[in-house]
Design a protein around this nucleic acid. Structure first.
Length: 675
DNA sequence: GTGCTTAATC
């Protein structure tokens, strides 16, 4: 067996082989070459080869080298150990660690890192605590474990412990601590950390450190400070710094500056695209998000491949838009390109399907997921709530508890909404009692539930005992309940509470005015209208749209601009005659009035959703469900009309208003709470 | 001679 201390020429060739092993993309040819030259027994070369195999995931080869080596030399168990973690072989890693007689600080640190990478911080910490001795790298490993798994507070606490134990933080330590601080988003913490950093001597402000600082300032709202560091780093063509700056602009809502920077970037990587697409989606610009995604995959040139993060943003954008066709296209893209989704990717798929009216697809995705988190449950529950499926939402919630996942505040908002839309008063009451410290949102949901169920006195009493200042949602729920149950007296109280909080929300005024109109109090209707004029509040116009063959067809109330306008109105008139003949139409409703001759004084403009439904009836295939999106409330008249149309045409019609769905089939509607 | 730790997007 050759030893490492032989002649200088031999050691020179070992060194060059080492370089070769480390630089070649695949270790296999080098392995074969060394075998032929008879150099394989050399322990250093073997260990290097072992390392290459292990890092590339060729674990059987690495293991063979390891086993052969352990007969006569000390093999590098650490390389194999870290590879077992990297490729998800937890049991093998543990067994190797237990079988390793001479564990050094690197062995222990590898264990800490391995457990932290898979998110098992308890085991990581157990290893860290059990370490016979530590280096700064060991501390960094534990710190980054906390930081990257969202335990920023733990990371900062450990940092203090580290300094207290007399360890000198190095640049890596600082980068990790700064990124924990960035995640906290606390500007004063950021400032004190920066001050501390600048006091320390001998710190090399390297690229990592500067970029981490940039990101911290950006996430804490110190955009000017971030910009200064960026201007210092930008000429070095540091893609990470550019990306951090793009997302900083996006976070602050400055979409134009983000776009300008993005367009100027020379080396866009997948994160650059993701930052832009996610930024558009989060700033309510879902159409821009989708368009940019299309650019990413269709424009010629060197575009990076979309990944899970890209797809999650695109699904979310499709959900907000309600564009099922584009959503399905994105799913097809995902499958064709074999992009694998993790939990959050699947969560955004659940969101997309339920927001696009395909709650069954949302349920299917949910069932297919192997790992579900609290967001998965919340997304499905709130989807079921929007679709009026209260019972199923309750089932999902009990399954969640069986699986040992604790409901959070969002879960309770969703489940109370589900009870409310599903007319489940008792269940909702019981659940509300189990909320530890209900927030304004929870009270708003409860007022909504009681109010829809007709328990207005109880709702009023609940508002009086809210331990904080009620927000607009609380009064809004009460006001809406007053409309449903025609309680004009209570409505005034709720409305004036609401006008104080949101003086510019036209919806509140319209609601009150409609309540007066229901009661025939026309002078009060006029008073509300005058108040709106005086305060300069403008009524928002509602519009509806239908997606057909990749295009969005948009309709305003009384719209005559669509190219197939005459067909649409023709169908509408036809339907109206059939409705009358079948006796489905309530006397005096605008179902009757809105298609009348234009010279009638009381003419009501045709609702946008009826135009959209008629258009969809004309263009869609027989048997296909019709999906209409509406950006305002579907009113009572329209609801009745669409119910009737679903019966006359024998079609399923799904209408999404702001955040809920009405499934019409056979003259029935899925919602059980009002109408 | 080598293994362990660091910044950006959902």
């Amino acid at each position: 067996m050759p030893s490492s201390s032989s002649t200088s020429t031999t050691s020179h060739s070992w060194a060059s082989f080492l370089l070769l092993i480390r630089s070649s993309p695949s270790p296999i040819p080098v392995h074969a070459h060394l075998l032929k030259l008879g150099l394989l027994p050399h322990p250093h070369l073997r260990n290097a080869l072992l390392h290459s195999h292990a890092q590339l995931g060729l674990l059987h080869l690495a293991r063979r080298l390891f086993d052969e080596l352990s007969h006569w030399a000390l093999p590098d168990s650490n390389s194999l150990l870290s590879a077992y973690f990297k490729w998800g072989h937890l049991r093998e890693a543990r067994a190797l660690f237990d079988a390793t007689p001479r564990r050094n600080v690197v062995t222990w640190t590898t264990m800490v890192t391995g457990y932290a990478r898979i998110g098992d911080l308890e085991s990581a910490r157990r290893c860290f605590d059990a370490m016979p001795d530590r280096t700064v790298v060991s501390w960094n490993a534990m710190l980054s474990g906390y930081s990257q798994n969202g335990f920023e507070d733990e990371a900062l606490r450990l940092f203090h412990e580290m300094v207290g134990a007399g360890f000198q933080p190095n640049e890596t330590t600082w980068v990790t601590v700064i990124s924990s601080c960035a995640a906290r988003g606390d500007p004063s913490l950021a400032d004190s950390l920066a001050a501390l950093l600048h006091q320390v001597r001998g710190i090399d402000f390297n690229c990592f450190l500067k970029t981490a600082l940039l990101d911290m300032y950006a996430k804490c709202g110190r955009l000017a400070a971030a910009r200064r560091i960026f201007d210092d780093l930008a000429p070095h063509n540091n893609t990470v710094a550019w990306n951090a700056m793009v997302s900083a602009f996006m976070r602050s809502g400055d979409l134009a500056s983000a776009r300008e920077l993005f367009d100027r970037m020379l080396n866009k990587d997948v994160v650059s695209w993701n930052s832009m697409i996610a930024g558009y989606a989060q700033n309510g610009q879902s159409a821009f998000a989708v368009r940019l995604f299309k650019d990413m995959v269709t424009l010629t040139g060197e575009h990076p491949k979309p990944d899970e993060v890209t797809m999650a943003s695109v699904f979310s954008a499709c959900g907000h838009l309600g564009t099922l066709e584009i959503g399905k296209w994105a799913v097809a893209f995902l499958e064709k390109n074999q992009i694998r989704l993790g939990t959050s990717g699947y969560n955004s798929l659940i969101f997309m399907y339920s927001k696009c009216g395909s709650i069954e697809d949302a349920q299917r995705i949910f069932q297919e997921m192997q790992r579900k988190d609290v967001v998965s449950y919340n997304t499905l529950i709130s989807g079921l709530a929007a679709h009026g499926r209260g019972r199923e939402a309750l089932e999902v919630m009990s399954k969640m508890k069986e699986e040992g996942i604790d409901p959070d505040r969002v879960t309770y908002v969703s489940i109370l909404t589900a009870c409310s839309h599903g007319g489940l008063l008792q269940e909702g009451r019981r659940l509300f009692e189990t909320i530890k410290a209900p927030s304004n949102d929870h009270y708003a949901c409860m007022v909504d539930l009681l109010g829809r169920a007709g328990e207005l006195e109880e709702a009023k009493r609940l508002i009086q005992i809210i331990p904080m200042k009620p927000h607009a949602g609380v009064y809004g729920s009460l006001l809406n309940a007053c409309r449903i149950h025609r309680r004009t007296d209570l409505a005034e109280m709720a409305a004036y509470g609401l006008f104080e909080i949101e003086p510019n929300n036209s919806g509140n005024y319209v609601l009150l005015s409609n309540i007066y109109a229901q009661a025939g109090r026309w002078e009060d209707v006029d008073k509300v209208r005058q108040m709106m004029r005086r305060r300069g509040v403008k009524k928002a116009t509602g519009w509806s749209w239908v997606e057909h063959k990749g295009e969005v067809h948009k309709f305003l109330a009384g719209d005559r601009s669509h190219e197939r306008c005459s067909e649409i109105y023709h169908l509408l008139a036809n339907l109206r005659r059939r409705m009358q003949r079948a006796g489905y139409v309530a006397e005096g409703s605008c179902v009757l009035r809105d298609v009348v001759e234009e010279d009638r004084e009381e003419m009501v403009v045709v609702h946008s959703e009826k135009l959209a439904v008629c258009f969809a009836l004309i263009v869609s295939e027989a048997g296909e469900a019709i999906r209409v999106m509406k950006n305002m409330r579907v009113c009572w008249d329209c609801h009745t009309a669409i119910k009737t149309i679903s019966k006359l045409e024998g079609r399923e019609i799904i209408v999404r208003d702001n955040n809920r769905f009405h499934h019409f089939l056979e003259g029935q509607c899925s919602c059980k709470d009002y109408w």
